[in-house]
Design a protein around this nucleic acid. Sequence first.
DNA 1: AACTGGTTTTACCATTTGTAAAAAAATATT
DNA 2: AATATTTTTTTACAAATGGTAAAACCAGTT
Lengths: 228, 228
Amino acid sequence: MEASKETSKRVKANSNGADPKKSELAREKILQAAKEVFSRQPYHAASLRAIAKQGGFDHPLIRYYFPTKAALFTAVVERIVLEFGDAHLIWLQDLDTLSPSQGLGLLVDRVLVYDRQYPHGTCIIMQNIAQVDRLDALPGYRLVPELFARIGSSFRKKVPLSAPEDEIDMFFSCLIAAFVNFLGAPAAHARRMGMDPASTEYAQWVRKAIMAQFVPWLGKLALPFSTY
Amino acid sequence: MEASKETSKRVKANSNGADPKKSELAREKILQAAKEVFSRQPYHAASLRAIAKQGGFDHPLIRYYFPTKAALFTAVVERIVLEFGDAHLIWLQDLDTLSPSQGLGLLVDRVLVYDRQYPHGTCIIMQNIAQVDRLDALPGYRLVPELFARIGSSFRKKVPLSAPEDEIDMFFSCLIAAFVNFLGAPAAHARRMGMDPASTEYAQWVRKAIMAQFVPWLGKLALPFSTY
DNA sequence: AACTGGTTTTACCATTTGTAAAAAAATATT
DNA sequence: AATATTTTTTTACAAATGGTAAAACCAGTT
């Protein structure tokens, strides 16, 4: 019997006494393969067969766990948005006591470490970001702007700045755009300087670039009477 | 008889006495429709039929002027790269006598005016930039990194700075990335602030954002003994 | 050993895609 | 006006895609 509803299958797998490993593992295997492929190609260019080949299974297996391609992509986006949703809270911890340079440096380091471990998130976002004005063509992708909005309000809360709200929003927009750009399309920038997009050399380049762009600006936004 | 070679048709159209308008106009009409569609969708998601519908003709007409979809996309990319290749020389004129703030301001204004008149270039670049590590899948797209490299060396020549070459390259990479990002995917950023991506309000936002990010940095890179 | 449930594969379908050739229409040439 | 040439449309096709159903497989249970 096939899993028509999102949860019914998992419930079933859990309910039949034995460990739910088999089904859960297969679902995970599919999600992982999809993540891989969707991070290399935009939604419409990625095919279910390519995902199946990537994961070493046959493409109708996908349908057993996800009713449509749209549902699979949505699940992938949900996953990475959840991961970012947890991670960004940690990224922003304990920055308020630091100087602009120290604080932003710590933030960048945290993001870079995260991106090394989970490199797919930014890539999937970047692959499809130019299509955000057609959200109907990108199932589930509306979660991405929503995520950015949430990270934005976290940022405003956890990094209190004295500047007017507009300017802080602008700063944040540019910062997150830079991260998505440099981490989500590393080849576009690394190749220009003859670097390997996956190298630590490039990661250090990104660090330096973001610091150079944003530290002076952040300094201007920071509380003038704050004691670092 | 069909135009197999790129130029043979045009030559023929020119050679038969009368004005070459008909053929040239049709070719232009197709290129224009393709530009429109390719600026809304990445290469693989855009179909020849969608382009034909956009231009109000039947899709096999495309093949009469362009042997394949790849050739059409290449022609579009060649076109926008040529346009940028002319335009960027003007953008960079007479900046060297200005202060970082004045010079960058003028540059940004020039780019914004250009982008308002030719909004497709940055969009087409942005739609496909995340696939730049698979140039075999994007016919003609290699011209884009090549263009960026050329603009980069123009920048270094026309805007002489005292900083080490690495830093200037880094500055330029970030600047062009910001332009491509903000102008090539305007909806992604404008919507976040509740703006219309095509509005002058958003254009002014982009101006302010780029100035805030890059003026202080440029100040550090500028010749310390230069007289503005 | 036979059965039962969940899981995976095989085979297939309708649609869309890029491409192709031939027919039709429009234009130019004599 | 009749013919030749160029341009456009009609029609068709093979490949790839998302989706579907049925068969095969596999693990426990009886």
